[in-house]
Write a protein that binds this DNA or RNA. Structure first.
Lengths: 227, 227
DNA sequence: CGCCCCCGGATCGTATACGATTTGGCCGTC
DNA sequence: GACGGCCAAATCGTATACGATCCGGGGGCG
């Protein structure tokens, strides 16, 4: 799978932003990156322009790029949007899920529960995203919606690394709600009902976060967020 | 407002895609564009990479860029997403609208009606978007949602120019529904109710389109779509 | 007569070069 | 000691150059 230099550069920088290697505000100096990756400045510029368009990077004219800063209110806004998009996409996809798909969902939710038992929150978070994408990733008939969902999840992942966020005790509630969601889908519940349930599932995560934030003795741990 | 060459190039190409000057599939040759705008290829590359990231342009490796093709199913998918996003954003923004804001909305809807009387569908379409943005553009507390809405409207505008779409007789229904929406906001109706009304407003446009499409004798006129 | 291969032109991808702009620190003044 | 202007270094923005890759057409072979 040959990637040209621009694509490799793009992939590397993006991964570093997503993973937290480049934190918010980090200056992205063309020549520095170019030398590190043994390429010229041109492919780096292209990579940064793409990242700019995707919202990961901001440019100040004639003063270069830096990783877009995020404040804590961003998390809630993006999470809210995710609740909205995911609720709808889940409801749209539900009628298209076969019995095998539903069995697969159960399996994935169990895997997530297993990760939770082992207190592996990073893996749990990953599996959580996988679970939801298993519902609408291929089965949702609206590809534009799926694209927006991918972008939104990516954005959330990045925020998670850099801003706080792990919500104590939310993990098990989340697993339970996933089971309830599976039951609704399997029972061929109405579109409205599924949308509402899937949306509320995410909104409750926001609530849990806000509650934890107003009770500092319980606090917000550095780490992962469930949803 | 000095723009550097990359930004000017970006603005020009984007405008041409949005306005239909560059139709879907149109090849975007670096040197050609560069010579036409009297710049070198480098700023053009940057512009195209941004447009690629925004989904306006697709790249084939070592074979250059072309305007992203759209099939007619795209319109419905994007419109569906707009219904979802706009419904929610409208409901979120509603409590934050002052009496003056609401008066402003009435005024804008009247202006749209006026354009419709003069059969100026392009202006009507423009005012239609302005109307909806007047609701949530500044008053919606979720900036991420507003950003997604901007992107989605842009995408729709581009599709409109290139694919068909004007839906006969939908204009006046739309004006009426806008009035009903204003009434709900003014009466401080519940979030749920406003979201549902705003969403249905857009979904009805999709329905109207599908009905018109299945009755070819009435047909779909080349022109503008209302919403 | 049709198919395949090869080749030249068009176009892309990347490196390098250099003028333009910003930035940060030094110095003089108040 | 604080403030503001000036200069050099850092960095960006753009042009140009050239090798790499793809595409389409012409000639050879079956």
């Amino acid at each position: 799978m040959p990637m040209n230099k621009h694509e490799r550069t793009y992939a590397v920088i993006r991964e570093r932003i997503l993973s937290g290697g480049y934190g918010p505000g980090h200056r992205l100096v063309l020549d520095t990156i170019a030398k590190e990756l043994s390429v010229s400045a041109v492919p780096v510029r292209e990579a940064l322009r793409r990242l700019e368009a995707e919202g990961w990077v901001i440019y100040r004219r004639n003063a270069g790029a830096q990783v877009a800063p995020v404040d804590s209110s961003t998390w809630e806004a993006v999470m809210h949007a995710l609740a909205l998009l995911e609720g709808y996409a889940t409801a749209l996809a539900a009628p298209h899920l076969s019995e095998a798909d539903i069995e697969d969902l159960r399996c994935r939710n169990q895997a997530a529960a297993h990760a939770l038992e082992k207190l592996d929150l990073i893996e749990f978070t990953r599996l959580n995203r996988v679970f939801h994408f298993a519902i609408y990733g291929t089965r949702c008939p609206n590809p534009y919606l799926v694209e927006l969902l991918g972008d939104t999840w990516d954005r959330l992942d990045a925020i998670r690394r850099t801003v706080f966020t792990s919500i104590p005790n939310r993990g098990w509630d989340s697993v339970t709600e996933h089971d309830e969601l599976i039951a609704l889908i399997e029972g061929r519940a109405g579109r409205q009902e599924i949308e509402s349930a899937a949306r509320m599932h995410k909104l409750r995560t926001i609530e849990a976060y806000n509650e934890a934030a107003t009770r500092p003795q319980e606090g917000i741990e550095q780490g992962e967020t469930v949803g």
